[in-house]
Simulated scan of single mutants.
Amino acid sequence: MPLSELNKPFSPGEIWEARKRLKPYIYSTPLLFSTGLSQITGCEIYLKMECWQLCGCFKVRGAINMVASLSEGERRRELVTCSSGNHGAAVSFATNLFRGAKAIVFVPRKAEKSKLAKIKSYGAEIIPYGQDFLMTLDRALEYAEEGGGIFIHSHGHPLIIAGQGTIGLEILEDIPDVEVVVVPIGGGGLISGILTALKSANEKIRVFGVESSAAPGAQMSYRDGYCHERIQIGASIADGLMGTLTPLTFELTHKRVEKVVAVNDDQIVQAMRLFQEEEQLTVEPSAAVSLAAIISGEIDIRNKKTVLVVTGRNISWERYQSLLTDGISPKQEE
């Protein structure tokens, strides 16, 4: 599919089409009430458990939706993507479902080893390149264009957004009277899909976004009124959020998101500890930012029925244990 499709209009109907397409392949993940987190935050906290999804993260929804939409001829071409880990694993998994498909995954050189192992386990070829997501993205785009491959964007393609939006449909089915949904933001594909699904049913549902302070592209874009596709990305333990918005994800969200806040690594680690202490949940840093924003006071949702989208669990035991035991060291922040 050409990159021009990244600028195609997007409608809620595409999310319903994605749901039908995905039904044979994915889990409808549970939505669990958290007594402990509700008491701590002063609101009704429900956890949308995408950390229990196939591949250990929500990304498989968008990846399967896009790969399933390709023709057999398109699948026989190389399916190229760029990822810090989770999207690459999802694309690798999705190509396994369809005979003849092959995935090429470009990753930053500092990508986490446990995520690389998961990508490899599903059969994709990994090409390390660049020091951050944007450098890696540029090379992946060049490679796809030079070799005639199909580029599968991690967050900017309508089919990816539609797949992620099926999470919103499931939330509405389980809690029709939900008042607030808090969603992590990297490139904006997840919040674009979820927000579109929720607002198509009830415009009064408030949707908050949370990103890492190391990659505040959404905050900058909403503040300035245009999409910042190129920003300076710092270092963060939340590797899955080290992207920026695209024109489409900006267009879908900037007038409808209640607020976007940024959290730092220390706040993320605190939230990871709370997930473990209160719910015995092991989550990766990117999945903890929504809770981090609430406990830090950046989002005030007291007495509201609130869903946190817990996006993934893909972190090695050694790294997880180190973060919770030792916190953030200067070396980790480099």
Rank of each mutant, 00 (worst) to 15 (best):
R230E: 15
Q232N: 13
I233C: 00
I233R: 08
I233V: 14
G234F: 06
A235N: 13
S236P: 07
S236G: 04
D239C: 03
D239I: 01
G240A: 11
L241T: 00
L241R: 10
L241W: 08
M242K: 15
G243P: 02
G243M: 15
G243F: 13
G243R: 15
G243Q: 08
L245G: 00
L245M: 07
T246S: 14
T246H: 01
P247R: 00
L248Y: 00
F250G: 03
F250H: 07
E251D: 15
E251P: 01
E251H: 13
L252M: 03
T253W: 13
T253Y: 08
H254Y: 14
H254N: 14
K255E: 13
R256T: 14
R256D: 15
R256M: 06
V257L: 14
V257R: 10
E258W: 00
E258C: 00
E258I: 01
K259V: 06
K259A: 02
V260I: 15
A262K: 11
A262E: 14
A262H: 08
V263Q: 10
N264M: 00
D265Y: 08
D266R: 11
D266S: 12
Q267N: 10
V269P: 12
V269Q: 06
V269T: 07
M272R: 08
M272Y: 08
M272I: 11
R273E: 08
R273L: 09
F275S: 04
F275I: 09
F275E: 04
Q276E: 12
Q276R: 14
E277G: 03
E277Y: 03
E278V: 05
E279C: 12
E279D: 10
E279T: 04
L281R: 11
L281S: 01
P285N: 00
S286R: 05
S286K: 03
A288L: 09
A288R: 07
A288C: 05
V289F: 05
V289W: 00
S290Y: 08
L291Q: 06
A293L: 04
A293E: 02
I294R: 05
I295R: 09
G297K: 10
G297M: 08
G297S: 09
E298Q: 15
I299G: 10
I299N: 12
D300V: 12
I301V: 15
I301E: 08
N303K: 15
K304Q: 14
T306R: 11
V307G: 11
V307T: 06
L308K: 10
L308V: 08
V309M: 05
V309I: 12
V310E: 03
G312W: 06
R313V: 07
R313D: 02
R313P: 01
N314W: 05
I315A: 05
W317A: 13
W317V: 14
W317R: 12
E318D: 15
R319S: 01
R319D: 02
Y320D: 04
Q321K: 13
S322H: 05
L323Q: 02
L324I: 07
L324N: 06
L324K: 01
D326L: 14
G327W: 09
I328L: 13
S329M: 05
S329T: 15
S329D: 02
P330V: 09
Q332D: 15
Q332I: 11
Q332Y: 11
Q332G: 01
